[in-house]
Design a protein around this nucleic acid. Structure first.
Lengths: 114, 114
DNA sequence: ACTTCAGTTAAGCAGTTACCTAAGTATCGC
DNA sequence: GCGATACTTAGGTAACTGCTTAACTGAAGT
């Protein structure tokens, strides 16, 4: 239950599909039922459920079945985790450029960090 | 040449593999040759080249062959594009929470934006 | 010229993915 | 209870992935 919430492999792989990103984008404005999510997508309902399974096992969405309707909601923490990884790479890159500039004796305008 | 640089499908899919993320993480600290990238990875060189192909066609890295050595460098703009998508979703989510709080008459501590 | 080094090309293969249709199960509204 | 609704399960298929080994090309070093 805990390990599911940090697997970047699954997270990025899940986001690598346009239908799944569309689902995420829809859940961002509020929870929705399976058929509400399926309605705009050009595929069968079982296919949508499969996509939801991928998103859920990546920890990006959680679902709860009430009567006969399964309600899906976004799990923003995992989204944030992915964003953090990208941010880390970007800052590492920027730090490197910074250091490069310093080593060349060129005081880059990015070195206003301290 | 232009359309390659914005395909989120390919970008996220490329990042959905640990070996490929390892390559990105290594390129973040500076350009490297194919065999330098391959050295820590537990797989054959052709496999690494294939991963590089995926990263390149996602626009995440660019390569240039000089003598017999191909040098790979990170393309940070595409990384930033992916980060932006995640950021957009997160802010949409936060805006929604904000509005929800407002509609409940509860002045949330996030509404200090204006 | 000969060898080694860096990478490339080709073929193949097991496992996964993204769909489908058809048939089921379990509410819910009347 | 009876039909419609909201999924769920099962099974199948075509295409794609992530790897492998083997054989090749071409640049460098000696």
């Amino acid at each position: 239950m805990v390990n599911r919430l940090g697997n970047l492999d699954r997270v990025f792989q899940a986001l690598g599909d346009p239908s799944r990103r569309a689902i995420v984008a829809k859940l961002v404005v509020g929870p929705a039922s399976v058929s509400q999510l399926a309605e705009p997508l050009p595929m069968s309902l079982p296919a949508v459920v499969q996509h939801l399974g991928v998103l859920e096992s990546a920890g990006l969405v959680s679902t709860e079945k009430v009567g006969r309707v399964r309600t899906c909601r976004l799990e923003p923490e995992v989204l944030r985790r992915a964003e953090a990884w990208l941010g880390d790479q970007r800052t590492a890159w920027e730090d490197r450029l910074d250091r490069l500039g310093v080593e060349l004796g060129k005081p880059s305008e990015q070195s206003r960090k301290a």
